[in-house]
Design a protein around this nucleic acid. Structure first.
Lengths: 339, 339
DNA sequence: CATGATGTCTGCAACGTTGCAGAGCCCTCA
DNA sequence: TGAGGGCTCTGCAACGTTGCAGACATCATG
């Protein structure tokens, strides 16, 4: 049996469709008596408003889309959690999609994919899409970018200060007296803007400490997964003069690096200290626990959702860049007892 | 400027709205010449179909909802990834929501929350909702349950054989010669069905090996997070006769337990061997790497999505219970060199 | 040449809802 | 007593799309 509509309720209650609608929404004044009668029929038939019809009428859906590279990367999972939570308190639900780092899929979402018409707005954590592509897209769905620092001034955008974060992480290692600090995660090509910002911060920390960077200690990785962290670390350990500390561009790389260190019999942090970025929960329970730069994910999510909703409601016309705070959390991988 | 509609295109191309629709959808035959002319206008105006209107007309949205307790729990994140992937290959997108283990939110989703009318179907990984509540719900949105083994026969449902999985995990420890095998994660109350199935498997393994279970080694935890695994392990280590192995009801508990063991200076697996369930990626990179029971998450997702779509299309009338395969993956936490 | 088949194209209605304008009705007050 | 105003309630139209039935022209066929 099909779901009951306003028409069904109206017929049974002997009132107009419009009145039933008014009772459901509490819009116009309805006498207590009639309201009660209509409500009884609503309950009896188990009426539930058809949101699709309502959306068509109102031109909005109450849904936003969140697009991340990979949902099973802990950072994105934790961020998604916060986004869903923030959206919910504002009456929105979240459609989640992942691009798997596929530029083509990112482009589809912005361009031809008419699926986008179903959402009031889009939160995008871009991997490869460029500013020009974003600018060139025809569709006018409001968009807020997450976690990148590029596209200066062209789009609403929320991120941490990547240069400062990387600088602080590196400085922490230098402050501990380490003098051969490696970096894992550089991406010296067009789509690696974030990585490059972190490399810049790494260099800044050295410069401020009056130290030179040994270019052989800067290892590039095409993505930020555990395996590449482990492989990079193995390569670093094979150097004639291996590092005594390593700054990884995210926690997964760091966890992979720690795994490689443990396997190789190096002690953390005695032989090699390790720092990451992201503060994923896993790093609190790793052995040793991981020192990291913690972006305020809840703040990122709330800010981004607020920006998007403002943008949807037409208020926030000029693109805003918001920098969300981060902080260094020192754990055993730099300051603990050796394991 | 508002998005162009079929009407706008029709007016500009001097044809009927219906013909434009036919060109867009390729439904009815349209002469090549006219098709080209209409297509030109479509491109010129950048027409994109309004999916909300299409959905209203067709009564389906091409969206399904996935509801999990917590998206940032790695198992659910990995599962969500597979669900989104499976849905995409079938032309569906996925709205993700999390209940935070809140029974009330689970109920809302099934009951009054009219949001549900926006989705063609619902994939639910229930924590606390009971069979009666599910049966009693008024709404008729097709539903498929994930990962529980309860509600026998009443609902479409996909899961691994929890009893067998737990039995195999425990048997693996017993086969290694361990004789004081603890269990972390029992939930001896109404909403803990899955945990109870795993406890049953743990007991079966002992029974088959002709061994008694020391009830003091079965530790209950209200949920399955790292911290509780660590706390439970600490309590076990404080026993006069601590265990020489521990079967944890999921990988997070196991990782927490390993953390507690390492902190306490116990060697894994020499002093205490550890097994989990879920095969989350983190367990491959932990120190030591974690032996676990791996459910086939891709298969779970594909099966669940297929079931749901069949259910949506009205073909699968009788509730189906599908058991998805799992396998034991032996890693260093039971078989490796001590660390 | 009449007939029917085929190939293109069109208008109407409807999906379920809400915005708008207004219709009754009762009450108040001059 | 009648004008005006407030309170309820209603009907129409529309959101943008597609299903349906049919119009019209063309063509092959007997």
């Amino acid at each position: 049996m099909a779901a009951p509509t306003l028409r069904d309720v109206a017929k049974r209650a002997n009132v107009s469709i419009r009145t039933v609608s008014n009772v459901v929404n509490g819009y116009a004044p309805v006498s207590d008596e009639l309201r009660a009668r209509v409500q009884a029929v609503l309950d009896e038939l188990g009426y539930r408003p058809n949101l699709i019809a309502r959306n068509l009428k109102q031109g909005r859906t109450g849904m936003i889309a969140l697009v991340v590279p990979e949902l099973d990367v802990p950072y994105f999972a934790e961020l998604a959690r916060e986004v869903i939570k923030a959206a919910r308190t504002r009456g929105y639900v979240v459609m989640v999609d992942q691009t798997d780092g596929d530029v083509e899929r990112e482009r589809e979402l912005l361009g031809r994919d008419s699926r986008a018409t179903m959402f009031d707005g889009l939160l995008l954590s871009p991997l490869a899409v460029t500013a020009e592509e974003l600018r060139g897209r025809g569709n006018k769905v409001p968009i807020v970018l997450l976690g990148e620092h590029i596209f200066n001034g062209s789009f609403h955008h929320v991120a941490i200060d990547n240069v400062a974060a990387a600088r602080e992480a590196t400085a922490h290692l230098l402050d501990l007296g380490r003098r051969r600090v490696a970096a894992i995660g550089d991406q010296p090509y067009a789509t690696g803007e974030t990585a490059q910002l972190r490399t810049a911060g790494y260099r800044q920390a050295h410069a401020r400490a009056g130290l030179d960077v040994d270019e052989g200690l800067v290892v590039a990785t095409p993505h930020f997964h555990r395996r590449l962290g482990a492989e990079a670390m193995e390569r670093l350990l094979a150097l004639p003069e291996p590092p005594d500390a390593v700054f990884c561009y995210n926690d997964l790389l760091a966890l992979g690096a720690m795994r490689a260190l443990t396997r190789a019999g190096r002690r953390i942090p005695d032989d090699v200290a390790v720092v990451g970025i992201d503060d994923i929960e896993e790093g609190q329970y790793s052995t040793p626990s991981l020192t990291t730069i913690a972006p305020d994910k809840g703040e990122i999510a709330r800010t981004a959702v607020d920006m998007l909703l403002e943008s949807i409601n037409g208020s926030a016309a000029t693109p805003t860049e918001t920098v969300v705070p981060h902080r260094l959390i020192v754990r055993d991988s730099t300051a603990g007892e050796p394991v």
